[in-house]
């Protein structure tokens, strides 16, 4: 019994003391509240009766609950559902494909034995600083590739991200010991095999990070459908909501427009609609988050692969 307890304590040497743990938890609870509170404010306000907002301000629990904001935005449910479908499909396809493209490139520029490592790194890095602007990009997309008004346009242009390649590269350089790659090479494995069988499994947290970021990117993107499509069928949820939000902003901010729009302006539950838009834009993606968390586990260490 006694011995057992001693043993347990010994094993837990790399854990922090109880006091430290409690303190750390307190810090993180404060941090979590700072992140949750605004979110709760957004959701609370989206259900608030508009007239009360003007007298009491934003509240997490609105005094008078109203669904007007959602009624206004969801008045036409058909296009919204369609937009969600577009977003989800684009996000899934885009995340999978781009993670593969990024990981392959990052692996290549992480290997010292690759002859053109420096060139390929610089080639990529240069694009992080210099870009030619929208017009030539638009010409490439519409005239050279001719992808405007296709679903491809919502995925293809964003497949690579120099920033995420760089992040992934450091995962590969720091997390993958040279030894196992070398020994695999001596065993006659090709680079692609080494990547799939050895490097990728050890780097799952890194790959999951980049996949998560790319997923967030595709989820939040409205620019590609906005620039490269003009038919409503390609509108994703962000574009759909941005349009409502921007029109709302403009009507509120410029007297000229407001004077013209008159009746329509007064009908809109302004603050509520804004917050409801935010809630609708975030909603589903938050649910996807725990899915990614499962990949952030330790234990996928080199040791387990060696064995």
């Amino acid at each position: 019994m006694n011995k057992n307890r001693f043993f347990k304590k010994k094993l837990r040497k790399n854990e922090i003391s109880t006091t430290a743990n409690v303190l750390l938890n307190v810090v993180f609870i404060i941090y979590a509240l700072m992140c949750l509170y605004p979110m709760a404010l957004v959701i609370g306000t989206s259900f608030a009766e508009e007239t009360y907002l003007n007298t009491v301000g934003y509240k997490i629990f609105p005094q008078v609950v109203s669904f007007d904001a959602y009624k206004y935005i969801l008045a036409n449910i058909q296009p919204i559902l369609r937009a969600y479908t577009v977003t989800i499909c684009v996000t899934v396809v885009g995340t999978v494909v781009s993670t593969v493209v990024i990981a392959l490139y990052a692996y290549v520029i992480s290997r010292n034995e690759f002859r053109y490592k420096k060139f390929f790194t610089f080639y990529l890095f240069f694009t992080m600083l210099f870009n030619g602007g929208m017009v030539p990009w638009y010409i490439v997309c519409t005239q050279l590739l001719d992808i405007n008004n296709t679903y491809v346009a919502l995925v293809w242009p964003a497949l690579m991200s120099a920033w995420y390649v760089m992040i992934m590269r450091t995962f590969f350089t720091t997390g993958v010991p040279n030894g196992i790659v070398e020994s695999a090479r001596i065993d006659g494995a090709g680079e692609f095999m080494i990547f799939v069988r050895i490097v990728a499994p050890v780097s799952i947290p890194g790959i999951a990070t980049v996949a998560l970021f790319q997923m967030v990117y595709y989820w939040n993107d409205w620019y590609l459908p906005f620039m490269l499509t003009s038919d409503p069928e390609y509108a994703n949820i962000q574009l759909y909501l941005k349009r409502i939000l921007n029109n709302l902003q403009e009507i509120l901010n410029s007297p000229g427009v407001a004077a013209q729009s008159g009746d329509a302006l007064a009908k809109i539950p302004r603050e509520g609609a804004r917050m409801a838009i935010c809630a609708l834009a975030i909603g589903p993606i938050v649910l996807a988050y725990p899915f990614f968390q499962r990949f952030f586990v330790s234990g996928l260490t080199v040791g387990s692969i060696k064995g």
Binding site: F226, R243, E250
Partner: peptide, 13 residues
Amino acid sequence: PLDWSGITEKINV
């Protein structure tokens, strides 16, 4: 149809 801030940008491009 485009939104307020969008139309200037898209027409320019």
